[in-house]
Simulated assay, not measured.
Amino acid sequence: MKISTKFALVCSTAMLGTAAFGEAHSSYTIGITQNNVGVDSYQTTYEQAFIAAAEENDAVEVVVLDAGGDVARQIAQMEDLIQQEVDAIIIWPTNGEAVIPAVRKASQADIPVIVTNSNIAEQGFDFVASFSGPDNITQGARSAEIMCDRFKAQGIEGEAQIVQISGQPGYTTAIERAKGFEDRLPEVCPDVTLVETQPGDWNREKSQQVMEAFLVKYDDIDGVYAGDDNMGVGALNAAKAAGRAGDITFVGATNFAVGYEAMAAGEYWGSIYQSPVDDAEAALQTAIDVLDGKDVPFLNYFDTPKITQDNMDEFTKPVF
């Protein structure tokens, strides 16, 4: 097994990419272009798990690339992988719409594309072999249920006001988690009011600043929904500094170690449990299954259950 993180033809087996996928191969070269490994610990752990999974498979060679959050760089990486004639490409999109032409180009070159973690926009689905990752809309919906159940337990479901800190604008995961939450909340708690949404860009420091502004603007905030725990803990830190954390229910949509620790401390109520290791291993296996000609669902989701202070003992602390 060989791993490359450079723009280079990693091995002679990359030439096998000229054959139609689904044919039996003795080995595959699979390229991956990631979103932004340095932006948070989830993506860092994902990359480590992906490389570890590839190292355990003697029939797989991988080219591991990172776009650094730059759409233009990711498109260039897609084109480079096409030129290398890899057997399959896994993409964690920096932008669900902007990468579609590059995904189409790979499809036209008979290179199957697997989208991982965050799907591309629907108009690009015809060029994708499979999506592997979480169901972000379901995650958002489950977060709304966690929030609503908490308000009902507190007896404030008829008057509660909440704010939302969403992820990076234009990023499919951010869009879908917000949609899942916003669609589900009025179904389960019709009298709860979402007063404002602002992006936190998956960044804890920015989310803390967003929450500071919310606290100045609104005297009454009963809940905060954040697109992940990294942002949620940023909001928690702002509320703690203002002396208002005890009055607010904090709910995230991907449980990070900092969120788990804050839950254990009784400061953060709940989130959605999602493993970057499962995410990475599922993406690699999906690519292999597609190349092997197996019947792979277009939307290949793995489960992401609810986690709250009430059931957190059933889950291990996240490693990211």
Rank of each mutant, 00 (worst) to 15 (best):
N117A: 11
E122P: 14
Q34N: 12
D58P: 10
R104S: 10
G170H: 06
E85D: 13
A241P: 09
G227P: 00
T45Y: 02
N237E: 05
C11S: 15
K217E: 02
I221Y: 00
S4P: 02
V210G: 00
N36M: 10
A239E: 00
K217S: 03
G133C: 09
A257N: 12
E61D: 12
Q139G: 11
P297M: 13
G68T: 04
F50L: 11
D292E: 12
G293Q: 03
Y273E: 04
G223D: 04
K152R: 15
E85G: 03
I137N: 09
S143P: 08
K240I: 15
S207H: 04
A153I: 10
N117S: 13
D289L: 08
D135G: 08
T316I: 13
D310N: 10
K317S: 01
N119Q: 14
F320Y: 15
W269P: 06
V37A: 01
Q161E: 13
I75F: 00
E61K: 15
Y225I: 02
K179Q: 15
C148M: 05
V258A: 10
Q285K: 13
D279G: 09
I90T: 05
T13L: 14
V319M: 11
D149K: 13
Y171D: 09
G158Y: 07
Q274Y: 06
V115T: 06
V62Q: 04
Q209M: 06
A49F: 08
I114E: 01
Q139V: 04
A49H: 05
R150Q: 12
G155F: 06
C189E: 01
D126Y: 13
R184T: 07
E79F: 02
V290W: 00
E212D: 10
A24K: 15
I100L: 11
L9D: 03
S107P: 08
D58L: 11
T18G: 04
E187G: 09
R73E: 07
T18Y: 00
T116C: 09
S26L: 15
E145K: 07
Q83N: 14
A262D: 00
